[in-house]
Design a protein around this nucleic acid. Structure first.
Lengths: 361, 361
DNA sequence: ATACTTTGCGCAACCGATTGCGCATAGGAG
DNA sequence: CTCCTATGCGCAATCGGTTGCGCAAAGTAT
């Protein structure tokens, strides 16, 4: 923690307000008012304003954010907490976040908790000590009440003032299940998410409801859950192997996310079943590699970038006007993306022709 | 830029040093010395030290980093600039960076320039105004001399004080080309990188040298370059289509990176050529999706996480002891990863049996 | 000429820490 | 009893901005 030897200053020294003021023969007050257009700005002579601005530009004056923050109690920094930075889901969201945030004059710290309880517990206060003004939690549930605004992406927090950006899971389930139904699948297996994923519960409930509406049966023997550990496609592969061991016939799998769908495809291939001819697989998320996967993954796209954008602009809004009434949650819509991991159920293929189906859609 | 309406403070108010001192009936000086173990610490009575620490713990005192930074001219923040945050390459590096940096007590800002010249030009000064103490550039060349330490990952900057973390491209080229040679490939096509990628030149020169050593011919008609625009696997697909149009026979492709290798596989499949039976494809990087791709990508792995870790710890080192002599570049080693996108050349398959080859390796 | 308003700008305190210097008090030496 | 040296701690300046209040000069009204 402590440094024994003295450490030299490391921040690049730029021209300060004081220097600029001295250069102009004016007070810091006046210069500050001009460059910030702060209250009193209009009472400064136009000539002076121009002189100040010209000099500021020439000397490349840029306010020291640390000093500004100290005085104004605003750091212009927020933080984003994600499960794992090297994963396509989080980074798609981050990409959307970045746009909005930088436009609003904010920078952000990223931290990834990797589902480690100690990190999840300690990060909030560590970030608070860094004076971040707000927090965006991506696919992560925040259990404590924080003294700063929190926006949760894909979160379902019912906590005090947290705003959730969430997908319309009912619509998503409908899109996927109706697609499978149209293709003639009736014995559908389900891969449920890990308990730590904040979407798991919500999505599963939506699936149950929609399956009921569509008359699709959900068989316990055809549902498996992703194991908590494991990285990449591995959990999906393992879950599918367990599924295959049960020896219960099925013609389609609705996976919790694209990673597990890819894992399922790997397991099916290893078991000698072709995708999509023997088994159709539907993923979820539409991460970048879903398109390049072979076969291309049919999946429910979450508008991840948009969710990031919305999260960031919502947070900025909350920072600007804290008192204003905020919606507790904001719904975004999924898009169904049909690629090559789904096909007509074998039983159906015998009775109808593909062209018939196509025109029927 | 400016805010018209007054904005309330947003930083969570914690107990300040002044309050803590008042609570203890001591001066700020003494309290500060105790909590920081700063010079003079030893001259404070042990009793007092204990009292201060106890009170600090009880009131949950945490120094205001803004004030500390202002005074000490150290923000404890560095920045990482990447081409695009939602891409597997950058995020693998980031994952390594995060570990080292947080351990060193630093947080970081991420910005992505997306190859936009305006962003590349403006980000450095924008970051400097944020008082970042150092910069890590990932696959991005920094053209100006910055007043802060810069470490470049996969960069080949010959600039003043920039430290480069680079792959041993000669070894990498050797691994890939020798693999293809062993499999009996002699007509090998090459997909060169985009001009904006800092690795393009270096790697190509290494390939030329190694190909010469191994007696592999590099035919201009069998080399294509990735187009500058395009996202994901698209550039690789387009480049491979161009290659196919030339009607020059080849049995293997060495792609610039995994993305373009996947694009190549897509294009080959579209052209009716099987990978690996008709054409072998070798990628580069070993991004996460290389393993889940179908066929699994044979590729040269860059130790991206390690490169991130090394970059971060090098930067921390530079911040701690600026005067110390620094190596201008640090070499890391590639690992060859053999998956299913490469196979014996067809011509060879007729004469030897696969088992023979296997045992011969 | 006097009084009041407007225009133009500066004084000085403050945000929350860090740190060189110096002032007391106590104990030991002579 | 005086002088000196530790020992223990505080004063006040400083980092680089922001802002409530106020002062002087110029302009306007009477």
């Amino acid at each position: 923690m402590s440094e024994k030897e003295p450490i030299p200053p490391k921040i690049y020294r730029r021209t300060s307000l004081k220097e600029l003021a001295a250069h102009l023969g004016l007070s810091q007050t006046t210069v500050s008012r001009v460059v910030n257009q702060s209250p009193g700005y209009l009472r400064i002579a136009p000539d002076t304003r121009d002189r100040v601005l010209a000099a500021a530009a020439k000397l490349n004056y840029q306010a020291n954010v640390l000093a500004q923050g100290l005085r104004s109690k605003r750091s212009q920094i927020v933080s984003v907490i994600v499960p794992e930075i090297s994963d396509g889901y989080s980074t798609s969201v981050l990409s959307g976040i970045e746009d909005s945030l930088l436009l609003g004059g904010y920078f952000y710290f990223v931290v990834s908790h990797r589902h480690r309880p100690d990190l999840l517990r300690d990060y909030p206060s560590l970030l608070l000590s860094r004076a971040v003004e707000g927090l965006i939690a991506v696919d992560t549930s925040i259990d404590e009440e924080l003294p700063i605004p929190v926006v949760s992406v894909s979160g379902h927090s019912r906590h005090g003032s947290i705003v959730n950006i969430e997908l319309d899971h009912t619509l998503a389930a409908h899109q996927a299940l109706e697609h499978l139904k149209k293709l003639g699948h009736s014995r559908i297996a389900f891969i449920k998410g890990q308990s730590f994923s904040s979407d798991t519960q919500t999505r599963w409930r939506a699936i149950i409801r929609v399956a009921g509406e569509l008359g699709i049966e959900i068989l316990p023997k055809l549902t498996v859950q992703l194991e908590e550990n494991g990285i990449g496609v591995e959990p999906g592969r393992v879950a599918t192997m367990k599924l295959l061991e049960r020896n219960e016939p099925f013609t389609a799998i609705f996976a919790f996310n694209d990673h597990s769908a890819m894992g399922a495809i790997v397991a099916l291939r290893e078991a000698g079943r072709d995708v999509p001819n023997d088994v159709s697989v539907v993923g979820f998320d539409d991460i970048p590699s879903a398109a390049t996967n072979n076969p291309g993954l049919t999946t429910v796209r979450q508008p991840l970038q948009e969710m990031g954008r919305v999260a960031a602009s919502t947070l900025l809004q909350m920072l600007r006007s804290p008192e204003e009434h905020q919606r507790r949650s904001i719904l975004v819509l999924p898009t169904f993306v049909e690629r090559n991991s789904t096909a007509l159920a074998a039983a159906v293929r015998k009775t109808r022709t593909p062209t018939l189906i196509r025109s029927g859609q």
